[in-house]
């Protein structure tokens, strides 16, 4: 008898599991009631970040949230919500589907998301996002082992039969920058993939890989400690701190000077009402001008660069166009491992 009850219970739990699964699938969208915007904001605002705590995006979100809060008309909280997964795609689709009421906004890694969108166009569209502003613009840099003999010139001359590029996910911005620039420069190379940036960096420090591309912010501390050194600086002029690293135009590729700049942009779900978006845009702009915020950033060794909503939207469109131009290389990159 006992045994039978037990079996019954287990079966019941199984049904419950399946039931919950179906419920989970259908509970994604609920009818939207957009709050009257004149009194916006009336409740707390969620700033969604597509990465775990510990990385640069989370750091920026945590730093700016209290200052957006400070410059909003009503007294509400701006809380950071980490929604990691699938290289930021989970968070981006979440925002795309959220109510455009101004209570869900996100900090976007557009450089990582743009190539993903080209490869997998169905889960989100960066062109539809209601852009609110840019908080940081960063240069890209190609770095080699600090004590090693690799330089931009030696790589261009193909002194080694092939160069190993340390990457973190082939669909990531870092890998695509390497793929596009090295392929266009006619260098023979091969990717060496890792799960995390830290492992990719360590690989170059050990000398197992030759070069690593990425935003300056992600490599700064390794460069400053001398473990890595910049071989190529993507920008319109050389960085005075690293006078030995040439810019692409000096190597004969001026088209690469700027297209790889990386951005941290704030956006909201498509169809955000005009008055809500102007309230948010103003708060972000005031936060970016706030001297106290600059003090916080200084402590973190980060530099702010503000772009307003319209400029941000323009940059996103340009970025998508630039990447589309190199679709073939990106496609080849995906085929490389197959």
């Amino acid at each position: 008898m006992r045994n039978k009850t037990g079996k019954l219970l287990i079966n019941g739990l199984l049904v419950l599991t399946l039931g919950l699964t179906t419920a989970g699938c259908s509970s994604q969208s609920s009818p939207a009631k957009v709050d009257s915007a004149s009194s916006y904001p009336e409740k707390n605002i969620e700033l969604v970040v597509g990465y775990k705590p510990g990385g640069g995006f989370n750091e920026w979100a945590q730093a700016i949230a209290p200052f957006i809060e400070k410059h909003l008309p009503n007294k509400v909280n701006v809380t950071v919500r980490n929604m990691p997964g699938a290289g930021g795609v989970i968070a981006t689709s979440h925002i795309q589907k959220a109510k455009p009421d101004g209570y869900t906004i996100g900090l976007y890694d557009v450089n990582g998301l743009a190539p993903t969108q080209l490869a997998r166009p169905d889960s989100f569209d960066l062109k539809e996002v209601s852009w609110l502003g840019t908080v940081a613009v960063d240069n890209n840099v190609g770095s080699v082992q600090g004590k090693g003999s690799n330089t931009a010139e030696s790589i261009l001359k193909q002194e080694k039969p092939k160069y190993i590029v340390s990457t973190r996910g082939l669909a990531s911005n870092d890998s695509i920058v390497g793929a596009i620039s090295l392929t266009e420069m006619g260098v023979k190379w091969e990717p060496l993939n890792h799960e995390a940036t830290s492992e990719a960096v360590l690989s170059v420090i050990r000398g197992d890989a030759d070069i690593l591309f990425g935003s300056y912010e992600s490599q700064q501390k390794y460069i400053e400690s001398g473990d890595l050194k910049p071989a190529i600086w993507f920008g319109t002029e050389r960085n005075p701190k690293y006078p030995d690293a040439p810019i692409p135009s000096e190597l004969g590729y001026p088209e690469f000077n700027e297209i790889f700049d990386t951005y941290k942009m704030i956006g909201a779900p498509p169809g955000l009402p005009e008055d809500v978006s102007s309230t948010l845009e103003e708060a972000i702009q005031k936060a970016m001008d706030d001297p106290e915020f600059h003090k916080v950033l200084e402590k973190m060794d980060r530099t702010p660069s503000y772009l307003n909503a319209d400029e941000t939207e323009e940059r996103v469109e340009k970025l998508l166009e630039d990447y589309a131009q190199y679709t073939n290389i990106v496609k080849n990159l995906f085929e490389k491992g197959e």
């Binding site: 775990k52 705590p53 510990g54 990385g55 989370n58 750091e59 830290s198 960096v201 360590l202 420090i205 501390k221 390794y222 400053e224 400690s225 001398g226 473990d227 402590k299 973190m300 060794d301």
Partner: peptide, 29 residues
């Protein structure tokens, strides 16, 4: 590795590095 290179030895160490950097301490050599 967290102290010697600033490279997190695990997920928790990545968070610790973030926490230290806010206070102007950059883990690394």
């Amino acid at each position: 590795p967290t102290l010697a290179f600033g490279i997190p030895g695990g997920a928790s160490m990545a968070v610790l590095i973030g926490g230290l950097m806010i206070h102007g301490l950059t883990p690394g050599p």
